[in-house]
């Protein structure tokens, strides 16, 4: 499952989640690192020794949940964004999930965002409670969201798309984070570059695509377009729903020409 789709099964998730008893005692890290890979910064990151030392760099992390207090330090060191901290004691009915979030723009505190499951499907709304980002955080901002307690094992990410232009102003530190943040990972575009193009008058997705190859990489816009749509909305003061849509041509899966050549011609226009 994981190897084919990148999505862990329910039993794989259960295998790394702390026990209900531990969860009921307060914040704790959940490490969803399922494959043997040569990577170990998490083990040395923990000041409390909660992540047990690795015998081999290819070991998977093992955490002693009772030593962990959910301090988030390991989260900012994990290059795989594999770690989150959950706290089901945060309020009566809502749990707090702290997760690494590298997309830009960073959400605003108080903003309602879409909460996604591990397949990227929208499963609920979440409220942004806190956005942490400073120089010691290894370029990994941490976003804390409040979600329905029942969904604590389901929610793993957020999407910041909004229907109204965001008017909230950013703090200076957020601004800095915004500018150097990567918007398009396929073509390595920073938000600052997109903003410069918008300022030059390229104010549609189609034009940004032409000028900066935005959305033209292997992900075909799945990652960057929601972010840039928000940015355009913010810059132009126009609700997302009223922005002209560019042509969006994501393939379900990119196909090798060699495989295509093996097909019989079929179908029509």
């Amino acid at each position: 499952m994981l190897e084919k789709t990148g999505v862990p099964t329910q039993s794989e998730i259960e295998s790394v989640f702390p026990s209900d008893e531990r969860l009921s005692k307060g914040p704790v890290a959940v490490i969803e690192c399922f494959q043997s890979i040569p990577c170990d910064p998490c083990a040395t990151a923990c000041p409390r020794g909660a992540i047990l030392p690795f015998a081999d760099i290819n070991d998977r992390p093992v955490i002693d949940n009772d030593k962990c207090n959910g301090c988030i330090l390991c989260m900012t060191k994990c290059p795989g964004l594999a770690i989150m901290v959950v706290d089901i004691t945060w309020s009566q009915d809502r749990a707090l999930i702290k997760m690494p979030y590298e997309f830009r723009p960073l959400p605003d505190v108080g903003q309602t965002v879409q909460a996604l499951d591990r397949e990227g499907t929208v499963v609920a709304e979440a409220e942004v409670i806190r956005v942490q980002y400073n120089k010691s955080m290894n370029k990994v901002p941490i976003v804390s969201i409040a979600v329905d307690k029942q969904l604590v094992k389901t929610i793993r990410n957020i999407r910041t798309i909004c229907d109204t232009p965001t008017t909230a102003t950013h703090t200076a530190i957020q601004e800095e984070a915004q500018d150097t943040g990567i918007v398009c990972r396929c073509n390595d575009l920073q938000l600052a570059e997109i903003r410069a193009l918008i300022a030059k008058g390229y104010t549609t997705i189609a034009e940004l695509k032409q000028m900066a190859r935005l959305g033209m990489g292997p992900c075909q816009g799945r990652n960057c377009l929601p972010v840039v749509v928000n940015e355009l909305s913010r810059a132009l003061g126009v609700p997302v729903a009223e922005l002209p849509v560019g042509s969006f041509r994501p393939m379900v899966k990119s196909i090798y020409l060699g495989d295509l050549a093996g097909y019989e011609e079929q179908g029509e226009n």
Partner: peptide
């Protein structure tokens, strides 16, 4: 794309290992 792929992998066989994006 099928007709195109058939043509191009004959002329540039290496390209069979490249993925079409769109």
């Amino acid at each position: 794309p099928v007709a195109m792929a058939k043509t191009i992998v004959k002329v540039l066989p290496q390209l069979k290992n490249l993925r079409m994006l769109r």
